[in-house]
Design a binder for these strands. Structure first.
Length: 317
DNA sequence: TCTGGATGTCAAC
DNA sequence: TTGACCTCCAGAC
């Protein structure tokens, strides 16, 4: 699934292209018919993300919120006129690599926008404005919530490294020791890690402890921190927790900026001149059996809770 | 044409 | 811990 960075990009895209507009909402597949009827004809106020959860907020009373979780297979496709700048597809990779599919503009020779094409495949939800459209396929969740219900969903989630306050100075005792102001995000991360003996490799995938991290960021952040995935979360040193949080913030922010997950530092890419995607983008993820980029060891893989965990026994021992 | 796999989550056992 | 959910694509046959 797209990890947290993709959902934040989606929220931005929804706000940019649907914000302030009255939209038509339908469910060509038929599995979201009742929800679509609740939203059809309403104005999109904006969109937000918390971890891997996308919320699209509707007016005029602000009491209707569309919640979408893409799950493992979900993806959005966008299309429209010049107001629809940005990615035209965000979500599951569909075997085309993690990178999103860039949108076309009229300058590319595309015909002028004349409404959405007939739905292809299982389109769970279609949203259409005067300028373009969005199709949702394969999501694990697509529902309409009241404000209270939305707050309840968010309350169950851990801190998001992409939250606005993620790097408040002094938040985790790092940036400025003189600043004792508690951080609602970094401090919460440290508190939730310190409260469990569960292995850190499992904790990072638990959305109630940290929201937005998935299998790639889990493996890559632990490698970059030199952290043994089997170490109990509450055994991590405070400076390790602090560094891990800061690295997650940096990695996910880069993912939002670039629209893809690249975790390797330039010095660790054997051929910096070549395109780094996909061969050089990761340290350990999907590199089982290959030599570590930083030591002579071979990258290992083990199944943990049904998901593949990649790590380097040399760097993370 | 069939099968396996994928950046996820939840309920049942 | 396991299986269901659910969609698409690449590779095997």
């Amino acid at each position: 699934m797209p990890e947290g960075h993709s959902i934040h990009r989606l929220a931005r895209q929804f706000t940019d292209v649907f914000g302030g507009q009255r939209v038509r909402v339908s469910s060509p597949q038929g599995r979201f018919t009742a929800g679509a009827a609740l939203l059809d004809g309403r104005e999109v106020v904006g969109a937000s993300a918390h971890g891997k959860q996308l919320f699209v907020h509707f007016g005029p009373d602000g009491a209707h919120h569309l919640r979408v979780h893409l799950g493992l297979y979900g993806a959005f496709d966008f299309g429209g006129d010049e107001h629809f700048a940005g990615a035209s597809s965000i979500g599951a990779p569909r075997r085309i690599g993690e990178r999103e599919v860039a949108g076309c503009t009229p300058d590319d020779g595309e015909p002028a926008y004349a409404g959405p094409p007939p739905p292809v495949g299982a389109v769970r939800m279609r949203m259409v404005s005067d300028h373009g459209w969005a199709d949702l396929r394969g999501a694990s969740a697509c529902e309409v919530l009241s404000t209270e219900e939305m707050r309840a969903v968010r309350a169950k989630l851990g801190p998001d490294p992409l939250a606005a306050d993620a790097l408040v100075p002094g938040a985790a005792g790092r940036a400025d020791p003189e600043d004792a102001a508690p951080s609602s995000s970094a401090g919460e991360f440290a508190r939730r890690l310190g409260a469990t003996r569960t292995m850190i490799g499992t904790v990072l995938m638990d959305q109630a402890r940290v929201a937005g991290v998935g299998n790639i960021y889990r493996a890559e952040a632990l490698f970059r921190g030199g952290i043994d995935p089997w170490l109990s979360a509450n055994r991590l040193a405070p400076e390790q927790v602090d560094a891990l949080w800061c690295d997650l913030v940096a990695l996910l922010r880069a993912g939002v900026r670039d629209g893809r997950i690249v975790t390797t530092d330039e010095a660790d890419r054997p051929d910096p001149a070549s395109a780094i995607w996909p061969e050089q983008a990761h340290y350990v993820y999907q590199r089982a059996g290959q030599r570590c980029r930083r030591c002579p060891q071979t990258v290992a893989v083990t199944e943990v809770s049904g998901r593949k965990l990649y790590w380097c026994p040399g760097c993370q021992g």
